[in-house]
Design a binder for these strands. Sequence first.
DNA 1: AAAAAATCAATCAAATTCAATCAATTAAAA
DNA 2: TTTTAATTGATTGAATTTGATTGATTTTTT
Lengths: 250, 250
Amino acid sequence: MLTPERHRIILQLLQEKEVVKLHEFVEATQCSESTIRRDLSQLEKEKKLKRVHGGAALLQQKREELSVFEKSTKNIHEKQLIGKYAASLIQDGDCIYLDAGTTTLQMIPYIEAKNIVVVTNGIMHIEALLEKDIPTYLVGGLIKKKTNALIGRGAIHSLQQYSFDKCFIGVNGVHIDFGYTTPDPEEALIKQTAIHLSQQAFVLADHSKLNESTFAKIAPLQEATMITDETDEELLAMYEAKTTVEVVKS
Amino acid sequence: MLTPERHRIILQLLQEKEVVKLHEFVEATQCSESTIRRDLSQLEKEKKLKRVHGGAALLQQKREELSVFEKSTKNIHEKQLIGKYAASLIQDGDCIYLDAGTTTLQMIPYIEAKNIVVVTNGIMHIEALLEKDIPTYLVGGLIKKKTNALIGRGAIHSLQQYSFDKCFIGVNGVHIDFGYTTPDPEEALIKQTAIHLSQQAFVLADHSKLNESTFAKIAPLQEATMITDETDEELLAMYEAKTTVEVVKS
DNA sequence: AAAAAATCAATCAAATTCAATCAATTAAAA
DNA sequence: TTTTAATTGATTGAATTTGATTGATTTTTT
């Protein structure tokens, strides 16, 4: 009996009985205990069931798709708040640079301004931007598979053809001494370039990013206004001494 | 027994049994294990089934989405044939330009060459290319909403940073006098530029495109090899007098 | 709480299945 | 016809799957 067939039987038995003993699986499939154990741990890893001592149990998951999507971004609610506020800063006729990343992605549904033009290096942003009928330019460059961002020489070169009224940048770390940082030097260079090409620069950083620093330096704090949901007054005062900080309250 | 016959039997058995052992295929077709293995890997690549250890399983994927997507393009079968042939022209280490459009999109699943680099202006191509772990560069520029292609000054500028071993271009019209044409002058300019930056240029044109001409001229016939599924000898001879023509047979 | 029973994860060797290669055959092209 | 290309089946060693066994862990019984 082939693996998918066994898996089908296992899941079907579970549908019928909620909780099933190991030995019942062995009988139903006519194969060894070991094999069933291996199947169960595999199916558990795939979130298809839950192992319990002596067998396995059905796992009543709520809408899988939604939860997976939502869990795919941490602090989604905070990011939405930050995004909403950042979007409100965009004015009619602005030329905007939108950095790749989940935080800036949250801005798009809240953009109200008319006659704007957006330039981005985030491939994930395209769909949402076109949905809103916003004229969108993409920078060129190498596609980084992990983040779906455009990076490299081509991206920098392509970016330098433009200049912006405002840019919105996502970062991984904000630190009082090291400034804004991100893990990938290639991405850091892009973010840096975008900031330099903009009249006004905004960095979007939820509270989990503050007092963190990662490998590649983007810019010192004073080069961009920080938008955050941090609430610790003491922490905020420290950053406010160095740069403009906009605080979003839930 | 001929290959399509075997494939038909394999898929039919799968329809009946969901999961089928390799040996059952061997019995049903009366041919060797090796042949069945080859068939299975081919059919898997075509997303017709899923191989599992010991045989194959029907894939109960979101068939709807796939088929809607596939049927959304006219002459899909012909385009696949053309795409398959075009993909076979790519050699290890090549730098390739892949034009936006449904015909060139069909090439991607069939690309076998290693260590290649692809540059494209088609946003729809990205997913398929990354799926195959092919290093992909995107040209910059304005996103044309209707076709999801990158166009404009930025695209041209970005394209000119590269040079290619081969380029594969989709067109809307092929005409004995007007050459290769497409409706949008912006897109025509990009295609033209790509052809000029390539050592070898290939135009992919299914039979519905021959003897058609649309608004914007891309290039005269002799500037690119035409790959087509046209079968009319007389018509072909006419084009062969002007340029190299590769004919794909079903 | 201690002993017994059941279940578990980890490991192993045997069996099966796999991908890669090669020579033979067949089909197609020159 | 001769040559070339494509397809096939057999063979190889490598990789995967399997059931059995081990001692550890958990649960149940005493």
